[in-house]
Design a protein around this nucleic acid. Structure first.
Lengths: 230, 230
DNA sequence: TAGATTGTTAATCGATTAACAATC
DNA sequence: TAGATTGTTAATCGATTAACAATC
């Protein structure tokens, strides 16, 4: 091992200062991203109630985050407010809508036409947000050929071909635990961008498809923790 | 304002040290509680795969938390492991099952027999975990009187009486956004312990009923944030 | 016993909150 | 202009990770 020269030491120190300040990685914290949908929802409500401007303090009172956190969060993306005035509600909503990527439309397919698959197919909110359901896939031949929420149910064997021909962006997995990973393995070879999995297992991909494993029951279990001794 | 005596100052200092060490509040961090269902799920899988013992390092490899975090998490509740050996899987599962309050059974009612209500009613996992569905409530007269997952659909007017007579512990709200808070206001006057709300609004209570507002779409929106530029 | 692995303290890291100068 | 409120830096808080003595 050789001794570092003063110059090298100074450079290393500078790099470390950069690092400390997060300048080598300016990606936004996941904690912030997870709060964005709540901002989106509350701002939409404000628009529906004809509120035109709001201060971080007022927003804090209704959304439950501190005013300081709200200003910190928003300033990750830009200075959307105005000193002495606050934020223009419609403008702020549009900004967050854009940050979340909701200006585009996304083509959706659902795999699994059971109760949950049907519930998601019929949940009109998705459609309103720009998620367009193009096809539902099912292994049970009795369901194939039916229509749900105006969308046809196809044999799951046709999945890859359909995904390709219809530029599917996101697939919702509503199968049982046993087949979820198998479907994901098949989807990994396609060009889809994201998987939203409701089967009660954590599915994994080896490429850069975004995966969100939803475990509905988890929130019920934590709820139970808090009431068990009531 | 009067000057504090040295003795009073010393006491205040001691109290503050207590506070700093968290000795005045030994409740377990919410971050830990939220991880418990995942431990529960993975340990169940291990049991099903006939794994009898596991070290924090091995568990770390499959569950994705660091070994250090796993040991910290578990030691909030007790020393469940053994030096040089690791953890007994069946025993650890039983402990976490107990911590979550899953040794008891809970009586459930669902309000709203639409697609999501039906999907939850038919989701057998809840039943396996000890959540016993006793009644479904609906405003639409065409659905009242039907059976879903072997459970009768009642007129929503009967909700309070049924909750009382059947010792309902937890109510799942599967109504639209407009009626969710109204149902919650009615439930607030009953003896239920928790509300699991799927309507796309944040419902609030003024007493000590535990409330979990689930916004399915939130995870889809954060997913979209990560794929918008793909 | 020696090796392995926990339980637990200490160090680090990151997120939240507080404070205030800038400025509309 | 004066008051209000942001944008942003600094301080605090809490959660995660590292380290290691205890011990099976």
């Amino acid at each position: 091992m050789y001794l570092k020269s003063p110059i090298i030491s100074a450079i290393i120190k500078t790099v470390n200062i950069w690092r400390d300040k997060g300048m080598s990685d300016n990606s936004i914290s996941i904690a912030v991203i997870k709060r964005l949908p709540k901002y989106h929802r509350y701002l939409r409500d404000l628009i529906n109630n004809d509120v035109e401007r709001i201060s971080s303090k007022e927003l804090s009172d209704i959304i439950g985050f501190t005013a300081s956190q709200i200003r910190q969060d928003l300033n990750n993306f830009g200075g959307f407010g105005q000193q002495g005035y606050g934020y223009d509600v419609a403008n702020l909503y549009a900004e967050i809508n854009s940050i979340l990527g909701l200006e585009k439309e996304y083509n959706i397919a659902i795999v699994g036409a059971g109760n949950l698959g049907q519930a998601l197919a019929n949940y009109s909110n998705f459609n309103n947000f720009g998620y367009k359901l193009r096809g539902i896939f099912e292994i049970n031949p009795r369901l194939v050929g039916l229509k749900m929420a105006d969308v046809e149910v196809y044999d799951v064997d046709l999945l890859e071909k359909f995904v390709k021909n219809n530029d599917i962006d996101i697939v919702f997995i509503c199968t049982g635990a046993g087949s979820a990973q198998k479907i994901v393995d098949r989807l990994e070879k396609t060009d889809i961008k994201a998987i939203w999995n409701f089967a009660p297992v954590d599915v994994k991909v080896s490429n850069d498809i975004e995966v969100q494993n939803v475990h509905l029951i988890d929130k019920l279990l934590t709820l139970t923790y808090f009431i068990k001794d009531k």
